[in-house]
Design a protein around this nucleic acid. Structure first.
Lengths: 365, 365
DNA sequence: TTGAAAGCGTTACCAA
DNA sequence: TTGGTAACGCTTTCAA
């Protein structure tokens, strides 16, 4: 059942004047309900909003009629009148491809949608920072009041748009740590701690001394923090240990390349800590390709635990980031913010958890 | 929330005049721009929309002022006036958890957002079918005109809401095949063909004769079609072959359970075709747990190729479903539909592709 | 207890 | 070439 050229075939049909734009289904408004009950629009509005000034009998009649006619309040009318929308936006300042490829966003999304739906707020997803007229797509979403506020995920350290949004006092909750935006409301995990935790495990529980780190992009705070946690654990161990750094971009491919670089420059490396699981998996492939066994010849650890780590062989020791709860928290704080009730200000930190599997070497319980 | 006549309760907290509900940033409207330029609102509106009736000089002044003041059209006002929103909705009639856990939706989302953003349409994501007042959450989104139309993904075969939406002549594009909704506009792949393709490969290229299928839920069309393709290939091969069926729910765990069932009932099974990769991975685990080697002792094939299959050892032979392009196509057709230009009606089919890796046995090409 | 009217920001139509 | 005015659907205030 092939269908030949279903691609965009360069047929730009002009809007013919003859073609009526849309069938325009008849939509039920307050007016219709009012007419059905035989009272005024305003009375219907008040009845539906539970205003005590409307008699119980009238309200009952209104509810019956509304239900009967299938009345649903028009969100544009309501938003216009209220001066604010009931939607919130999840903004990811990256191109769609790169973004959702990472399981992190899936988990965030689950958390955000759960909370938003629960509170009857619609969720808009905005990804590409396409600058249409000098204004980024997501800035437009907010400035046009299509969304009452935004959750911003995974912004680069120097992202000007984020700073601008925070400054513009648009309700914004950031996911991650933004040390240079102290007034921002944000939700994150302590990556320095998490990285130190797992690195400490490699050093103390397994006794590795020659370590390497495959970092994420160092213009993202997570990349910076995980690297710092790694070094901190090395420093605190008080034992002589050397290390190497290779930088990746959180993709499997970059992890593989970084591992190659490490193995070339530090042939006797004992353990490698990658800043996320996908890079760790790339590192695993590279080690295998060179005939090295994991963990016998070289131990491996990752970060995130978003599912990939369960699938590898051996299972990947990692740090679990509660991405779904991050999303929930962020949505809750944003909705509070929009509501006017000031949420606890500043940066909220959710705990991470060390997940021991087999890639770091034999368990010592 | 009863509100009866209590004796001493009598205090219904009034909105305190002191507490200001929201800071309410001053927002730039058409009026402000008009005042700045010294002309009327309507002239500004026309100037901005490129109406030729406005002189070049005036338009230039308007554009300058709008840019200067940071004017952004209010989407509620515009939607109200236009009688339709500029957003579209991606609806997934499942609970959030289950939904995004599956990588399929990530890919869909990438495709949909790409097209939507490109065409300046905002995307709302609606997941849970929580029935708030007898109306499902996503029906509300549409009926309230928050979104002008919807893409519905992964609906069960008998989903009444889908049929209702199609009947209500709300602009809707379905993803998948819906044989019982012939008038619906939908985009999908030919799962019967895909399943027959991969099963045929197992039979013809590898010579397996004792086969089993781990199906998806048989109340979803994909589950039905993939099973049918499997049987069809068996039938068409013209060679004597027997098979077993075990039903799963697309989760890794169910795949594992199904594999156990198969191995118990058909000890000499040669090849197992699972209706998605995650179940195939579960099957892999079960086979391993029983000391069986893949593909030496039992061959394995999956379906989808959303990334999991690359990570397993051995790599999983599978059928690639172009989920991202499904999302793109669906968004394009929906936007056409909303626009009034009728898109090619009926069901569009995108091609699937057989991806050979190692789990099906040694390559013979 | 209810009705009438105003206004939110935008755009389309009709005057000027 | 422009400006006024009305209307979209909703909520709220004032008047009855």
């Amino acid at each position: 059942m092939t269908r030949g050229a279903w691609k965009d075939e360069a047929v730009v049909s002009l809007p013919e004047p003859g073609a009526k734009p849309k069938p325009r289904r008849r939509v039920v408004t307050l007016r219709d309900v009012a007419a059905a009950v035989g009272i005024s629009q305003s009375a219907v509005s008040m009845a539906l909003s539970g205003n005590p000034r409307i008699s119980a009998a009238t309200r009952k009649a209104v509810l019956a009629a509304a239900s009967e006619l299938g009345y649903v309040p028009n969100s544009a009318g309501r938003a216009l009148r209220a001066g604010r929308s009931t939607s919130i936006a999840l903004v990811v300042p990256q191109t769609g491809n790169h973004v959702f490829g990472h399981p992190y966003f899936m988990h965030l999304l689950v958390g955000v949608t759960a909370t938003a739906n629960q509170q009857d707020a619609a969720l808009m997803v905005s990804t590409s920072p396409d600058e249409t007229h000098g204004v980024t797509a997501y800035e437009r979403v907010l400035r046009s009041q299509a969304a009452a506020g935004a959750i911003v995920a995974s912004a680069a350290v120097g992202d000007l748009n984020v700073a601008r949004m925070v400054d513009a006092s648009i309700p914004v909750v950031l996911i991650g740590r933004f040390p240079h935006l102290p007034t921002a409301i944000s939700v994150g995990v302590d990556d320095v701690h998490g990285a130190a935790l797992i690195t400490g495990h490699l050093i103390q529980a397994h006794g590795y001394r020659r370590l390497a780190h495959i970092s994420g992009p160092l213009d993202h705070q997570t990349g910076i923090d995980r690297y710092q946690g790694f070094r901190q654990a090395l420093g605190e161990s008080g034992i002589p240990a050397t290390h190497t750094l290779a930088t990746g971009d959180y993709s499997e491919e970059s992890g593989r390349a970084a591992m190659a670089q490490i193995l070339d420059s530090m042939a006797d490396v004992q353990a490698v800590f990658a800043a996320n699981d996908e890079m760790a998996y790339g590192a695993l492939l590279e080690a295998r390709a060179r005939g090295l066994r994991v963990p016998e010849d070289v131990a491996l650890a990752g970060y995130d635990d978003f599912g990939v780590s369960r699938l590898t062989t051996p299972g990947l020791t990692t740090v679990r980031v509660p991405a779904e709860r991050l999303g929930q928290q962020a949505a809750e704080r944003l909705l509070q913010l929009i509501d006017g009730s000031r949420p606890e200000p500043g940066h909220a930190v959710l705990p991470v958890e060390l997940v021991l599997r087999d890639s770091c070497g034999p368990h010592q319980s």
